[in-house]
Design a protein around this nucleic acid. Structure first.
Lengths: 125, 125
DNA sequence: GATGATAGATGCAGTATACAGATAGTATCG
DNA sequence: CGATACTATCTGTATACTGCATCTATCATC
């Protein structure tokens, strides 16, 4: 806990689904290869993701039918896998967003109902 | 994939942080013991959480200083650990909610920008 | 031919999780 | 009493996930 507060990211990590769903979301906009996704994630303001994990997640998402890939050798430099979102992935993303909204509503309703117990131990700011 | 769609929950799970932050949020409202939290989570509309995982998560959160507990033997039945949120946990929860909003904004902006490529295969820059 | 950016992958150690079951107190029913 | 059920917490195990370091490889520039 309280590991460090690098960029204002809390000590908790939620990587798993946050990473995969962010990937799906980005691929809804444009097809892309892993390195691009990795770069964009790094600039997104989201917590940092390990690049090894990103590539592994991509392969996993492909195995799960959420995305599909083909090797792109059109550009110079090392070959790249171009990924695109499948219909399954698109559906899954929508479901996820819905689920996420439920979650957020749950959190916020609890936080809103907090005024009952301000006493007890110590006073916050 | 597409494991199953029990209650409309997608095959993906973000359990880790979703569970711990939901616990923190509930404890912001009132103190509770594990079984209560477990019950309330089950009725929350959120994806189902394993009870073993719930208890282990509680111990973990306590170790991390997010919550604190004491044994409550006042009621009949087996003894229960009453948990309450610490200031650290409260702070962490707020930070988490903020972080979550960033994440959601990221997802939604990507989804919103999707209308550009309905017909096209690819749009390299 | 060394360096650095691009692009992707893997081995390993530590952590997390689902599933199953253990332990225990109390209550009810026959 | 014995069986059953509900409350309440915890643990063992097998698998999965993740961060870190490292590795391969292509190409451009110095």
């Amino acid at each position: 806990m309280a590991d460090e507060e690098k960029n204002g990211h809390s000590g908790m990590r939620l990587h798993g689904e946050m990473l995969s769903t962010s990937i799906l979301a980005m691929l809804r906009e444009w097809n892309a290869h892993g390195y691009q996704l990795s770069k964009r994630l790094a600039e997104s303001g989201l917590p940092p993701f390990d690049s090894g994990t990103i590539y592994r997640t991509l392969r996993q998402l492909e195995q799960d039918g959420m995305i599909s890939s083909l090797w792109d050798t059109s550009a110079s430099g090392p070959a790249r896998r171009m990924y695109s979102l499948t219909k399954t992935g698109d559906t899954m993303l929508s479901a996820w967003i819905e689920s996420l909204q439920k979650y957020q509503a749950f959190l916020q309703s609890a936080v809103a109902g907090q005024k009952d117990r301000l006493d007890e131990k110590e006073q916050p700011e």
